[in-house]
Design a protein around this nucleic acid. Structure first.
Lengths: 135, 135
DNA sequence: TTATCACTTAGAGTTAACTCTAAGTCAAGC
DNA sequence: GCTTGACTTAGAGTTAACTCTAAGTGATAA
């Protein structure tokens, strides 16, 4: 089973433009062409693109995904280097999650602040003071 | 206690350029100037910038932070609207965390794959087959 | 009082990641 | 045989978010 660029784009919620951009950028190392010169994606390519999207969606820059792809293109003896990149990226993702959770607390605190009628009254009062002060 | 733009920039790990850019963009509604025309940040401004950074770091676009700031500038009777924005953003952040955690699983699967010596041998074999196939 | 330094402005330049345009090719259907 | 439609290319254009430059101001130190 093979897929056209349009089918693959739809599968991953990307545009065909984006897929071609990724291919130009060198991060789709294995995609082949049919006799007409059109890109023909097989299961290996789809799996590869799934990982590319995963890395992109977790904040890896395309130039780093390119570096990872270059390792893959070089052959199976780069496995250790690729694993090292993924380990490092895993730590970055864990840090992102921790940062989001910390930021979430501030957002929740703000929401609670607006929800509290006592703070509402306080805010009205502060606002009056501020307006006087800043006038 | 007040702060200069350089002090505030350092406090939040931003450049002074970025702070001015935010001010130009209208997302620092309360910052005043001293007699020389220089920005003078008080505790209210620092607290505001902390929230701005929180929203930015959780993926809110500056135009949306601008919309939030415009509400704040309009006065305390926009509290409900601001709370609604924060509630919606909270959901977006929860979704981001869930997405990161899902992607993390794929990354971990890949790391484990590279770590398994059986897969290493399998990969070497597949690679040979692929090279023959793609030659 | 002259130099230095931190700030000011408007506006130009940069970067990443797309996003699209124009012109062309190829296979399928009428 | 001709049109239609999905693909191809190179390269230009877009957007968000900075990032910097140039020219100028005002307060402090030698």
């Amino acid at each position: 089973m093979t897929y056209t660029i349009t089918e693959v784009a739809a599968k991953f919620g990307l545009s065909a433009y984006t897929i071609r951009y990724y291919d130009k950028a060198g991060i789709l190392p294995f995609v082949r062409r049919n006799q007409a010169g059109n890109r023909q994606f097989d299961e290996v390519d789809v799996d590869w693109l799934r990982l590319v999207c995963c890395l992109k969606n977790t904040g890896m820059a395309l130039k780093d995904i390119k570096a990872y792809s270059d390792l893959a293109r070089q052959g199976s003896d780069t496995g250790a280097a690729r694993q090292a990149m993924l380990r490092q990226h895993k730590q970055a993702v864990l840090q992102q999650i921790a940062d989001l959770q910390a930021n979430l607390e501030l957002i929740e605190t703000k929401i609670d602040f607006y929800a509290d009628p006592q703070n509402k009254a306080l805010m009205d009062h502060l606002k009056e003071l501020e307006q006087q002060h800043r006038a």
